[in-house]
């Protein structure tokens, strides 16, 4: 039995899982703050938007967070499909990973056009 190439998809999945654990709560909190109209000055849409537009590092960081989270979610969904008995793993994997890649590319295009 040959060693598996699974690390190729698993490593970004694990990294994405860590990123999600750290950033999704922040995003949820910000969304709540916006809902209650209590956004701290530095975190308003306008100031974040202009900051992102000016700073390449910020764009890269946001892209990293989005791409890894998307990949991680795609992989988790793939495993969930498998665990629920959907045994067409190759097709499921192709569809979900493609969706993650397309969404990441779209995010990149949006970020770098700012």
């Amino acid at each position: 039995m040959a060693k598996s190439n699974k690390p190729v998809v698993w490593f970004p999945f694990a990294a994405g899982g860590t990123v999600i654990a750290f950033f999704i709560p922040v995003i949820a909190l910000l969304t709540l703050l916006v809902a209650f109209g209590k956004v701290p000055a530095g975190l308003s849409y306008e100031s974040m938007h202009s900051w992102l537009a000016d700073c390449v590092l910020a764009k890269l960081a946001v892209f990293g967070i989005l791409a890894l989270s998307l990949w991680s979610s795609a992989h988790r969904l793939r495993c969930t499909c498998f665990d629920f008995g959907l045994r067409i793993d190759t097709l499921v994997a192709a569809v979900l990973y493609s969706a993650a890649i397309v969404a990441s590319l779209a995010a990149a295009m949006f970020l770098f056009r700012l």
Binding site: M1, K3, S4, W10
Partner: peptide, 17 residues
Amino acid sequence: RQEVVATKEGVWECTFV
């Protein structure tokens, strides 16, 4: 041990339930 552990039948079959 990696010859067994690092295969598809090894750790990579686990989905961390």
